[in-house]
Structures are given as C-alpha cells and as structure tokens.
Design a binder for these strands. Sequence first.
DNA 1: CGCTCCCGTGATGGTTCTGTGACACATCGG
DNA 2: CCGATGTGTCACAGAACCATCACGGGAGCG
Lengths: 242, 242
Amino acid sequence: MTVPAESTRRILVVEDDPHLGAGVVENLRAEGYEVDFVTDGRKALDWLDGKPCGLVLLDVMLPEIDGFSVCRTLRERGDNTPVLFLTARGDPADRVRGLEAGGDDYLAKPFHLRELLLRVRAILRRWDWYQSASSAEGATLRFGGNEVDFRAFRARSWNGIAQELTEKEAMILKVLAERPGEIVSREDLLERVWGYDVFPSTRTVDNFILRLRKRFERDPADPRHFLTVWGVGYRFMSEGET
Amino acid sequence: MTVPAESTRRILVVEDDPHLGAGVVENLRAEGYEVDFVTDGRKALDWLDGKPCGLVLLDVMLPEIDGFSVCRTLRERGDNTPVLFLTARGDPADRVRGLEAGGDDYLAKPFHLRELLLRVRAILRRWDWYQSASSAEGATLRFGGNEVDFRAFRARSWNGIAQELTEKEAMILKVLAERPGEIVSREDLLERVWGYDVFPSTRTVDNFILRLRKRFERDPADPRHFLTVWGVGYRFMSEGET
DNA sequence: CGCTCCCGTGATGGTTCTGTGACACATCGG
DNA sequence: CCGATGTGTCACAGAACCATCACGGGAGCG
C-alpha cells in the first residue's frame, strides 16, 4: 500500500453556489482538512492538473462543465482521486450515473453537514485508516472543562453531563470556536450556518446562543465563553482570557 | 474488530494477459489493497493453499486449469473466499456457470476499471463480516446480556430466549457493532449491507433497527444499545457507556 | 402449485428540532 | 433620568424526522 502523501488531507470543493461552498469549506477546515475551493468545472480541472489532493467534492450542476464530465475527464487522465458527488436531486439514477462517471460516492442536496463530514471521513479513511486516531484531535474542542467532539456531535460538559448536540447547535459552536476571541456578527453566523437559501431572524441566533450557554456555561446568566458583543454579535472565549 | 483482518485486504489476481493483469493490480494497489498476481490456474490453487485472502479476481479463460474449475476446486476444499469472475464474453450463461461454480460476482470484459473497483469494494465490505465471523473472536458478540453468534445467525437474548436472525438482521447488527459508539448513517448501512447499486428506502433501515431492538433491548421503546442519531442514522453502544 | 418466510414500502401517529413572537431586562445616547 | 434600541428568556407552532404497524411481492421449499 502506498504511503499516503500529505495530499491526502487536502480536499477540493467544486461548487457554484458561493454560500453553500463557503459553509462546506469552513466546516471541513474545522475538521482539520486543508481545503481549496473553485466554482466551476473548468477551474476544477485546471486546479487538479497541478495540485494533487485526497478528495474532490463535486457539484453535479456546474457552469462551463458539469460534474459528471469533470469526473470522466479526470478518469481519462488516469487520475483516480476519489470523487464525492453533490447533487440537487435525490434521484437514485443519479447515483448510478455518478458511479458510472467514475465517482466514489454520492450525496443528495440538501444534505446535513453531519452526513457530509461522515462521508468525507469514511472516504479518506480508506487511505489513512490506520492513523485515523490522529485526526480526532482536530475535531475535538476543549474549553472551560467542556469537551466537544464535532465528529459525533457529542459533548461532555464541565459537570460531566453528556450532551447530545443538535446539528445547528454544533455548527454555531464550531463557527464561533474557529475564531476564539474574535467577534462574529449574527449575519456571519446566519450565512455560515444556515447557508444559501434560508434566512431566519437574528432572534434565532440568540436562541441558539442561549442553548449553548445552558449546556456549557457554569452560570448561563454570567457567560464566560459565549460573550455578547452589544450591537454586533458574539465572541467565543476558550478560557478566562481578557 | 474495527480493523479488518489483514487478509481481508489481500487480493489475488489470476489473469493470463500480463498487460491487463498489471493494470488491474496497479489500480487495486492504488486503492490500498495488498495484491498478488499469478497467471494460470494451477499457480492460483497453489497460492491459495498457503495464503488466505479476502478476494480472488479470477479470469475464466486460463492456461492449465480454467477459472470455473479453479473456483470449484476451491469450494471443494471448503474454501469460501469470495470469487469475482472476469470473462471475455458477455454471455449471460457464463454468469450462471460462474455462480454455479461457486463464484460471488461476475464482470464481463472489457470492463471499466472503476466498476471493477466498486465491485471489489462492495464484495469485500459485504464479506468482511463473514470473514471475521469465521474467526473465533469475531464470531460472537456480547452486549447487555445478549449473545450473538454470527456464524449461525443465532442469538440468545438477555432473557434467555433463542433468536434466529435473518441474514440482513445479522449484517446490520454486524456493521453497527463494528464501530461501537460511532455514528453510522442510514446511507452507510444501505451501502454496506445492500451494496452500492441497490436502493431500498431509509424506512427499510428503520425497520431492521426496530426488529433488532425488539430482539435485544430490554425496553425497545427506551433503547440502550441501538440509539438513534437524529437526522443521520444510528449508533450502537455495547454497554451503558457515556 | 401452495405455503412460508423474509424483505421492502406506505401510512399513521408520535417525537424532536427549529424558528418566531412576546415580554422583561440591559445598554446606550442624550 | 428617560426613551430608544438591542438582548435574554420563555413558550409555542410548524416542520422535519422517526417508530411502529400492516400489507403485498417475491424467493425458496416441499
């Protein structure tokens, strides 16, 4: 078996919707992957020509060249980089077409980010399955006695209570925790977590902060990790820093 | 149990065309399999006598001993290693003959390498559990007072009642139990149990979980081993861990 | 051919999650 | 100190999702 090059943790995301793409990219980076992002089929092929990677996330509906064709072209080049298709329809026939085009897996939109991360991990694990333990630390977050496992969306709070995070809770926490100490506006959160086609009110964000505080703050009324920045948004503090 | 037996990732390619064989071998190795390569039927039988493997890719037209005979001999020896036939003709009768000889799958030349890889993957995944079931430690699973014998599809539940598992029930249980504590998505289950080209609905998975819970949970309505992960799939817990 | 068992699907009712409105409280600017 | 605006908190309704049941088709067997 070939030793996995460092390229195995690099992922190329090909997606024409910038919001969706950005959300996916953020989440993959938070998992510890090195991620590049292009928005059409031609750029994808160019990019792959020069830079090997461990996985391509490939939207089917793309400007210039559609996803299936991109994949077929890759295979004709002799490039066997794993391809995970993202498609708008849930039609099982699309899955077959994806596999025929040379894809490795297939996920229908709208997908749960959870599901996507699971699949990415599953695919890459075929290459570096023996060192999968090391990838765990990129996916766990520790702060103030709490411990969050983003792969399983589970956590253990400071008082030892096991917490099952919901998808949205986990995603908000992740976005905040990616930038410890930095201010994240509600609009940022909405964009990153809810993505491309849904726009809940800012009150919704407050509510999730509330839930996170209940789960992880010793005194939810006097938060030390999920701080309010008045008039803007929130800020995550890992420990009792300034 | 998480790590498959090392023989499960070993493949023997039996093919008299050196070019084709080398191409196949190279691609399988690129996928991370450990591959050996022989060019006639007699060598294949000799090789298999000493070195167990997870799969044999067997050309039908071979010097010395043809592929069907090789497979039959294998089975007569009591060797149940999965066999995937490669044949030059697309004759459907060949498929039947292959299955009669004890083969597991069949691919007509010329084939797409990609499809070959998919089938290999599918077969190894499906047979993975069977392989480990034939080894002593992988054969029985114990959790919460239940005891499952994967070789006989038989189990004894916590209350002492004997259970006859169906094949699908056993496979689902096995796939879940291979990753205690980890989330397994419905799609994962579908692919690993049913194969890459079959598409039952996700409701089907629910049904099998239901049956497993009825068999093995003390209170099926409050499961402790077969846990639901909302929005994704299921998770198996061996005991009352976190 | 008829029987049985297994599998897969649809329907129904219940559960969980998500987003919003309401109201009280906090903060800011004057 | 006061109004204006933003935030904390709660409870609730709709939506998404799951558990469960009942039924029909199909494979296997006698």
